[in-house]
Computed example of a mutant assay.
Amino acid sequence: MSYAIIGFGKIGHALARAFARNGIEVSVATTRDPASFASDTAAIGPTIISATLAEAVKADIIFLAVRFESYPEVAKALPSWKGKIIVDVMNTFAPPEELDSLPSSAFVANAFTGARLVKGFNHLAANVLAQDPAVQGGRRVVFLASDDDGAAAEIGALAEDLGFAPIKLGGLSDGGLLVHARGKNWGHLIFKDLITFD
């Protein structure tokens, strides 16, 4: 299984640190030349690989961590996203009428033809997501929502490999609403920093 993070802002950095902590290789891409951020990826760890967007979209599982208004440009990188899982880590302040009154992830899914989309890792602030998820003898929770149970299960397994405790919330139209930010309508679980004890 291959992994990529598209977007290397605060959230992209936080995700890269999670992969580095666990020695899991992940490609990191933006729309910029990879040489422009290669020193940043190298500083995080040897398993964090600078890549072009064209290289990153070859991964099996892709974390979409760009600004919300930038995702359509990423979606154009492939004519079909069949066989890939997209993890939507974005939040948006776009008003509901701009999103066809859909949860933001359901709206985004329409742009990635054939992909299996999972909403996840977006409810934590970047500085919290960047920290070791092992906390006080427990594990930091990440919420996942998807209309594809198999994709949610795969991302749940990856979340555990990264040290988190995944909690599945159901589909995008119900569970997804709990973890999305849109306009002034904030999901009830946005920015909740929860820990589970086994």
Rank of each mutant, 00 (worst) to 15 (best):
P166L: 12
R140N: 03
E154P: 04
V141H: 02
L178T: 08
L144K: 03
A151Q: 02
L162G: 07
L178K: 13
F164P: 04
S146K: 08
F143W: 14
P166D: 11
D147R: 11
A145K: 01
S146W: 00
L158P: 03
A153Q: 15
G156C: 05
A165N: 14
D132N: 14
A159H: 08
V135F: 09
K168S: 11
G175V: 09
D149F: 00
L177Y: 00
G156V: 06
E160N: 03
A145F: 09
A157H: 12
G175E: 10
S146P: 04
G138R: 11
A134R: 14
S173Y: 14
I167G: 01
L172N: 00
K168W: 10
G171C: 10
A157K: 13
P133Q: 06
G163M: 05
G171D: 12
E160Y: 02
Q131V: 06
A130Q: 11
S146M: 03
Q131A: 11
D174F: 00
Q131S: 10
G171M: 05
V141A: 00
D148T: 02
A134V: 14
A130G: 08
D161N: 15
A145M: 06
P166N: 11
E160L: 07
A153G: 12
L178P: 01
A145S: 13
L172D: 03
F164N: 01
G137V: 11
L162C: 04
S146N: 05
L172F: 03
L144V: 00
E154A: 13
R139G: 00
G156Y: 10
L172S: 03
A134S: 15
G170W: 07
G171N: 14
D148W: 08
A151D: 09
R140A: 06
D149L: 10
D149M: 00
E154T: 14
